[in-house]
Design a protein around this nucleic acid. Structure first.
Lengths: 165, 165
DNA sequence: CGTGAAACCGTCGCCCC
DNA sequence: GGGGCGACGGTTTCACG
């Protein structure tokens, strides 16, 4: 997927589209400082190559009736690859689990779950997650307040390439 | 922000735009089953009302040179509101901190951090986070593998409204 | 909410560097 | 190789029924 190398223009495009994914191509091009056609060609190439994976609208969970957000720390009995894969596939099949990250240290996985209410989450927790094979320990932490939620990467840390001229 | 009530069409719009935020308005309208103008009016209204907060391109962190992703569990000395606010504002000022959630239970905050390399993260950890006022305990967990990363809410759990006719 | 019309945009071919 | 210019078709976005 990564045969290409990115130049500064590519990175600026991705920074802009991360900040506003619905920007029109002409506005994107004018912000970058090139004309529309090459800008669109680059965007398409970035999508094809997998550098841009998708575009998502960010919706307000509360307004849609999703009042419950929970982080779940999971420990497994064995961390051998087949068992890991089984657990990961389980997570992918649960719509309520939005993120699943494998970690180092004492806990093996952290899950971010979103549910419409506590009872839906508790049903999931007791009937699905804790009941899944190979799950040793489960610790949950309710989200009281979302203080910051900025998807993506910090483009502030991207170094400019030296001018090629 | 929520004076409006959402109907099924609004929810379908948000579900579609969460799945593909760059869909054209005509395609969106045809998927919903209405014509383009009222569809666009609804999208604009949802944006204005804050139900749709933003649109983001999902970029591949690895390709951009962000190899390090870390979950950080933070305990504070005091959880009084002024100290909480101070800590939250600190998090908002750190670009490396992408998410900051206040939790119940023994840990007070969980942060999701994204950094270009380990040394950048360690500098942040020692010079910024641990050095911040009111921070009592810091535990970090490196992300080994991202097994699932689905932003947004599970629209599978949204109940259809009864037909009004 | 739907129809029509006008302005804008995405997209392609070609030329240029 | 990549960027710019022009033109066509589709889309966005009005005003109106």
């Amino acid at each position: 997927m990564t045969g290409h190398r990115l130049d500064n223009i590519d990175r600026k495009i991705m920074a802009e589209l991360q900040a506003d994914g619905r920007m029109t191509n002409v506005e994107l091009a004018s912000r970058i400082g090139i004309s529309a056609p090459p800008c669109l060609r680059r965007v398409r190439a970035l999508e094809e190559a997998g550098f841009i994976k998708n575009y998502h609208a960010f919706v307000d969970a509360k307004s849609l009736g999703f009042d419950v957000q929970v982080f779940v720390m999971v420990g497994l009995i064995t961390q051998a690859e087949p068992e890991l894969t089984t657990f990961v596939e389980k997570c992918q099949s649960w719509p309520l689990v939005r993120e699943c990250h494998m970690l180092n240290g004492e806990i093996d996985f952290i899950l971010k779950c979103v549910a419409p209410d506590l009872s839906t989450f508790q049903t999931f927790l007791t009937a699905e997650l804790t009941a899944a094979p190979n799950v040793a320990s489960v610790k949950t932490s309710l989200v009281i307040r979302v203080a910051k939620d900025t998807p993506g990467v910090p483009f502030e840390y991207v170094k400019e390439l030296p001018e090629s001229g």
